[in-house]
Design a protein around this nucleic acid. Structure first.
Lengths: 373, 373
DNA sequence: CTGTTAGCGCCTTCAA
DNA sequence: TTGAAGGCGCTAACAG
């Protein structure tokens, strides 16, 4: 007799299917069938099984299931940071979709570090995830084309997939930046500064390209890329820029972080927006409409990026998607005209929520800001 | 002979330890020992094993390990929302600590919904997590005292644990609110409005209590709790409040969401801060110092909340913590005086980061790093 | 130092 | 409709 049935020493072991089977007076398989519905069981025995389950507070061990089954019902998610609302919102969307599919999410942050990303990815694969949604660190292309990925589905978000086998859900960075810069040009600005972060970031170079295009097409020469490495650096750069021979009359911040740095720097230098310098940015955020002046920005469908990516992944997982090649999906961005560019939207600053916020179920109609002209 | 060694039908199976053992000409246990270091293996055979591992691209199956071992090396994390920077930052901290311990994190959102929380918790337990860090939904007390939790460690963050067996890492909400309100009182305000969200939230009632204390102790009568259910509602409430017989001269927003609503509403009503109404809030946030006027707030050590909670959990998991009763840890908050209260801080608005931001190892001098979009 | 045996808890396969 | 045997991949416990 197995000692596990020896009640004398049943210290703290979890109750298993065998326990349920014993109590219900049936075989383990019957319990399994009742739970999974994989085959018909007489109503009579099913009832007995349920009763035993309840009495014993039995909970199936999903780890054992994962080991036995082909699928672990788990996906992995890797984002650079979680305290960045953009990434966090993506993660939230992915998590929500996963929940709808009955999947669990193993989540981690890469801190924008290729080594961490590799290590964590590898750990997830060892944990037998069925798929991966990643906002990949720039230079991990070689890794992702390794053989380890032959059996797992991968979708990247916000940045294109390193290998070409994976799907990516992106945003038209170049076109978006271009639109914003063209709007500034429409205000008559001819010298527009471009503020970005590390140029190793995919989005930064794409947005700079859009900026250059807009400038060149308008017959103006693009300014050099300004890398706001740190707040201090940004202060110094902006100060010297504004004190230079030909200070720009407008400024495009390629993401929220540079926007924040830039705003602090301008404010510290006592420079007025939009009177002394017009401002536009890429990526909307909470408070962008509460700032004085409210900020004109390119809004990205953040939640939808994650949502679409996750849905794509589950399509692949369920195998309904036959194609082997990776696709690139682009979700549209939108110019939200507010005041920092020099516009005076008719409805001054309506007191309404413009972005999904805690209480607002995501993915709802966006009630875009009033845009004039 | 097992058919799994029949090469003819090795379609796509993962390589296992048996494959490695076979190729290296050793037993499975030797391979296991080499990998885990659980026992000495001669350098010679170890080398052979490593070679086989490399040739076959062998990766141990963590699911099988979890099934076999007592621990799954996995913890569960449940937060209400991920697009709320507060929760996301906590989650980031927890994830970081988990990474340091070689643990994976299964993360999900409860959407502030007790049923979802229960379902997801239960799923995590079935997945054999070694512990749980939760920002619990208010009214799930009974659930958490169930027997299912007898074998798992739980630490709650931001809100106290329902049962008394769990540790909680909290912030002095009452005292913090009190400090902020006292600061407003110090400016000579006698009528101060309190804006909050749903009173079912623990933090809201605690902060309201602090507000009432401060008011009463100063000999003024507290105003009734104003629940900013939605932006629209907030606009209406603020409008009627300001048009009432005795409009308040100051306002305390109990968290960021009401702060945002309030700012929008005030701005829509054309009310000047701090001239017509002074403002203070609970919880600092990016941009709070860039707003005009910059906001006076109570700052919470968000990242540390998650960090401490996770470390507490791992202490419990490793069993070095014997005590069975749950403890409540309070991390200090801090009044950050800016301009919205009517103060004129000497350093006008220095261009420096005031909060932990990207890439800043927690608790370190701040130097935010690139986040990309 | 190394190999064998025996499960972890579940479900696929086959037999009754 | 139900049950028994066997194995998913790994490691504790015991040989040798």
């Amino acid at each position: 007799m197995k000692n596990r049935n020896n009640k004398a020493e049943m210290i703290q072991r979890n109750t298993t299917m065998a326990d349920v089977a014993l109590l219900a007076g049936v075989g383990k398989m019957t319990v399994s069938r009742v739970l999974t519905g994989s085959a018909r069981v007489s109503a009579e025995t099913a009832k007995r099984v349920y009763r035993a389950i309840k009495i014993l507070h039995y909970q199936p061990n999903e780890v054992a299931r994962s080991l036995r089954a082909v699928s672990s019902k788990t996906i992995g998610v890797i984002v650079p940071y979680l305290y960045d609302p953009f990434f966090a919102t993506c993660a939230h969307a992915i998590s929500t979709v996963a929940k709808q599919h009955g999947y669990s999410v193993i989540l981690t942050t890469s801190d924008e570090n290729p080594e961490i990303e590799q290590k964590q990815t590898s750990l997830m694969l060892r944990r037998q995830v069925d798929g991966l949604v990643v906002i990949p660190v720039s230079d991990n292309g070689r890794y992702y084309s390794g053989e380890a990925f032959s059996r797992v589905h991968v979708v990247t978000v916000d940045r294109p997939a390193p290998g070409s086998r994976f799907d990516s859900v992106l945003v038209p960075n170049r076109a978006g930046a271009r639109t914003a810069v063209e709007h500034l040009l429409g205000h008559g600005h001819r010298s527009i500064a471009f503020l970005g972060l590390s140029r190793t970031l995919y989005t930064m170079t794409a947005r700079y390209a859009g900026y250059r295009e807009a400038m060149s097409d308008a017959g103006h020469s693009p300014d050099p890329y300004i890398d706001c490495g740190s707040p201090e650096r940004t202060v110094a750069l902006i100060r010297s820029m504004m004190n230079g021979r030909k200070p720009p009359t407008a400024l495009f911040a390629a993401n929220n972080l540079c926007m924040r740095y830039a705003l602090r720097a301008l404010s510290a230098a006592g420079i007025q927006i939009p009177r002394q310098i017009a401002v536009a940015g890429f990526d909307d955020f909470e408070m962008a409409d509460v700032l004085q002046p409210s900020l004109t920005v390119i809004r990205q469908p953040i939640y939808q990026l994650g949502e679409v990516a996750a849905n794509l992944l589950f399509q692949r997982i369920s195998g309904s998607e036959a194609s082997k090649a990776g696709h690139r999906l682009f979700l549209p961005v939108e110019l939200v005209v507010r005041c920092s560019c020099g516009c005076q939207p008719r409805v001054p600053r309506a007191a309404k929520e413009e972005r999904p916020a805690p209480a607002t179920p995501p993915g709802q109609p966006n009630d875009p800001a009033p845009s004039d002209r």
